[in-house]
Structure formats: structure tokens, C-alpha cells
């Protein structure tokens, strides 16, 4: 009988959760991401939710905590419910290629926000990751002038945007004879700040001599923050850190004169706005303006941080 009781509890929970279910005749937008715990992804999802609300759409957010297999499953579920549009946030669309095609067959437009564009999608809005990486990498190299640059790379290549940034770094690094890569570490997601802090602490212990590490290039801001915390805690001087994304914690550290000297502020608001505008157009039966759209990014240093 206890099992029955547990079933009743579970079912009533489900019923309660759905009691405040969606209204009919409103457009339904499914927002899917595997990285909701990331500050920037979260920021974009919230902006998309806000924009959806403003447009009178019913937005449902699905997070699969880094699990791409689950993302494919959940995408199939929302396709089965005949949503009016799907937005993939910070997702490599190549991993859900079959689902994008399935959505296309059911005339459900798939939009990307900080993802990438592949055939079958309506459009994608992002920052130009290659351009941002070029901007921050050149700034980092300029900061150290002609001195030898012993570089630690903190990245996560499975993320499509971060991969593009890292590939650009690889290219620029090879063009600069002053740069020596000490090590490249893949940062665990979720938990990038804590993980990169630990990695950096270990690297600092393994490279105790001054000048053995002179710079840390992080593929996004969270590992840059973790590395900065480790450098500050160890009291090491002569190491500069850069990030990309321009999240508020990173900008604050730049403002305070920490080892984190620069980041590139992505225009997440711009991306979410671009996607929302395109969804609006498609829902009105119009075509998208451009399949790949870029929201311009800005370099943030101590001089302009917080302004």
C-alpha cells in the first residue's frame, strides 16, 4: 500500500506542477540548453524569457546539465508537443542535427542563440567568436610586449563557441615566436570557477619560479575568475589573465586591478534581441533577415570597466 501512497504523492506533485499550465492560443517557445548553470547562458535564457513574455509568448526552459543525449530527447519531446519555435542556447547544433531536421519536417523553426548555424535552422545570433578571440589574444600579447610569454590555456573545446576562440588562439600563438604554451587544461563544466581555480593552484605550485607562467588565456570568464583567485591567493606577481564574455564578476575584478586585466564583453542582450526579433518575424510568416547574425562585442580593460 505504501507504493500506492508514493505514486499518489508523485502524481499529485505532477498535477500540482501542471496546474498552472499554459494558456491556449498563445505561441509556445521552447528554450533548450545544456548549460543553464553557466552565468552567460543563464543571462541569455533570462533575457529570452523576458522578451518572450513581453511578446505574449509562453516560454518553457529546458536544461539538460551538460548532457547532449538528453538534449536530443527533450528536443524530440517539445517537437512532439508542436511548439511554435525552438531556441537552442549555447548549443552545438551538429549534436542535434537529426532533431533539427525533425523540427523542420514539422515546420517548427529552430533558432540559435550563441550557438551556430547549420542547415535546417532558421537562424543563429551570436558574437563572432573568432573576432573576439583575436581581439583579446592580441591585447594579451601586447600587454607583455616583447617579453617571453609563458602561457597557460584554460578552455573547454567541446563548446562550439569556445572551440572557435581556442582555435584562433592556436593560430595567433603559432604566429608569435615569443609565446610558449606551458599547458592547456580542459575546464570541467559545470563548476568552471572552482575547477579552474584548483587547476591554477596546482600549476602555480608546479611552476614556482617567477616568470615560469606569465599569462593565462581563458576561453571564457569563469575559468579566468578561478585562475585569478588562485593567483591572488598564492600572492604571485607578474601573471596576467584574460577572459571572454564580460560577465559582471570578471568586470569587477578588472576594475579592482586584479591579475584579470581584460575581457571581451559579449552583447548577450543584443543576441537575445536579435533572436526575439527573428522569431517575431517568422511567427508572422515572414522570412528571417540573415541566417547568421552577429551582435558586436567590446574590449573591457581597467580603463573602461564598469562604465
Amino acid at each position: 500500500m505504501k507504493k500506492i501512497l508514493s505514486i499518489v504523492i508523485a502524481l499529485s506533485l505532477i498535477l500540482t506542477l501542471t496546474a498552472c499550465g499554459s494558456k491556449k492560443d498563445t505561441k509556445k517557445i521552447a528554450i533548450l540548453t545544456p548549460y543553464l548553470s553557466s552565468v552567460t547562458t543563464n543571462q541569455m535564457v533570462n533575457l529570452l524569457k523576458k522578451e518572450s513574455k513581453a511578446n505574449g509568448w509562453d516560454a518553457n526552459v529546458v536544461d539538460t546539465k551538460g548532457d547532449v543525449g538528453q538534449l536530443a530527447n527533450r528536443m524530440e519531446d517539445v517537437i512532439a508537443t508542436n511548439v511554435d519555435a525552438i531556441v537552442l542556447v549555447s548549443t552545438d547544433p551538429n549534436q542535434v542535427k537529426a532533431q533539427i531536421q525533425a523540427a523542420k519536417e514539422k515546420n517548427i523553426p529552430v533558432f540559435g542563440c550563441d550557438s551556430a548555424y547549420i542547415d535546417g535552422m532558421a537562424m543563429n545570433a551570436t558574437s563572432d567568436n573568432t573576432a573576439m578571440s583575436k581581439m583579446i589574444t592580441e591585447h594579451l600579447f601586447q600587454q607583455l610586449g616583447n617579453k617571453p610569454i609563458n602561457l597557460v590555456v584554460l578552455t573547454y573545446r567541446p563548446h562550439p563557441g569556445v572551440l572557435k576562440r581556442t582555435l584562433e588562439l592556436d593560430k595567433l600563438r603559432k604566429q608569435n615566436p615569443n609565446v610558449k604554451k606551458v599547458i592547456e587544461q580542459q575546464v570541467n563544466v559545470p563548476g568552471p570557477i572552482e575547477n579552474s581555480r584548483k587547476q591554477m593552484e596546482n600549476l602555480l605550485l608546479a611552476n614556482k619560479e617567477d616568470g615560469s607562467i606569465t599569462a593565462v588565456w581563458a576561453g571564457w570568464d569563469e575559468p579566468a575568475i578561478g585562475a585569478t583567485q588562485a593567483i591572488q591567493a598564492a600572492g604571485r606577481k607578474g601573471i596576467i589573465v584574460t577572459g571572454i564574455d564580460g560577465n559582471s564578476q570578471a568586470v569587477d575584478l578588472i576594475k579592482k586591478g586584479s591579475p584579470l586585466v581584460a575581457t571581451v564583453k559579449q552583447n548577450f542582450t543584443g543576441m537575445a534581441e536579435l533572436v526575439t526579433k527573428q522569431i517575431e518575424q517568422v511567427l508572422q510568416g515572414k522570412a528571417v533577415t540573415e541566417k547568421e547574425q552577429y551582435a558586436p562585442a567590446t574590449l573591457i580593460t581597467k580603463e573602461n570597466a564598469g562604465k
Partner: peptide, 22 residues
């Protein structure tokens, strides 16, 4: 559970709560 709760638009964190409790 994952399929049905997604279709009912139950937020993913609540899906975890329900599945974990069960």
C-alpha cells in the same frame, strides 16, 4: 517521466526533484 514532464512544460529543475524523489 522526463518525456511527460517536458511535454507538460514542467521546469527542468522540478523534473529533477520529481524524478529524484521517486
Amino acid at each position: 517521466l522526463a518525456n511527460g514532464l517536458t511535454m507538460l512544460e514542467v521546469p527542468s529543475f522540478l523534473q529533477d526533484v520529481v524524478t529524484g524523489c521517486i
